[in-house]
Amino acid sequence: MLELRPGCECCDRDLPPESRDARICTFECTFCADCAESVLGGICPNCAGELVPRPIRPPAALARHLASARRVFNPGCRSQQAI
């Protein structure tokens, strides 16, 4: 089950579970659409994986399976190279 992290790892922008602006890689690294597209070029700086739109969890399922509260923030992501 997706973790649905609450913020962009690059700029720390809030990304609530219903946000259509969240982008993730296969490791669930989470970025806002602005950072994913304009800063990172659609590639995760952590794993070099593709960043794609994060799916929206239906409200009934979200009530049973809450989104994560764990925030990951790497202010140096704008200069990081993918490994």
Rank of each mutant, 00 (worst) to 15 (best):
P17Q: 10
A82M: 02
R5M: 00
F31M: 04
P55N: 09
P53A: 08
G49Y: 02
G42W: 13
L66F: 11
C10K: 08
V39A: 12
G49F: 01
D34K: 15
V39K: 08
A69C: 15
P53L: 00
Q80P: 01
C47G: 09
P59G: 12
E50I: 14
G49A: 08
P53C: 04
E18S: 11
A63Y: 02
P75R: 05
N74V: 10
A82Y: 00
E9V: 08
A22K: 02
P59W: 10
V39M: 08
F73D: 00
A69V: 15
V72C: 01
H65C: 15
M1S: 15
T30P: 05
E37G: 11
T30A: 07
C10F: 07
A63I: 08
A63F: 03
F31Q: 06
P45T: 03
D21M: 00
L2G: 09
S19R: 01
L62W: 07
T30Q: 10
G76H: 14
T26D: 14
G7Q: 06
A61I: 15
A82G: 03
V52N: 02
E28P: 01
C11M: 06
A61F: 12
R78Q: 11
R23W: 13
P45K: 04
R70Q: 05
E9I: 08
V39R: 12
R57V: 13
P59D: 11
A61L: 15
P59T: 12
C32H: 02
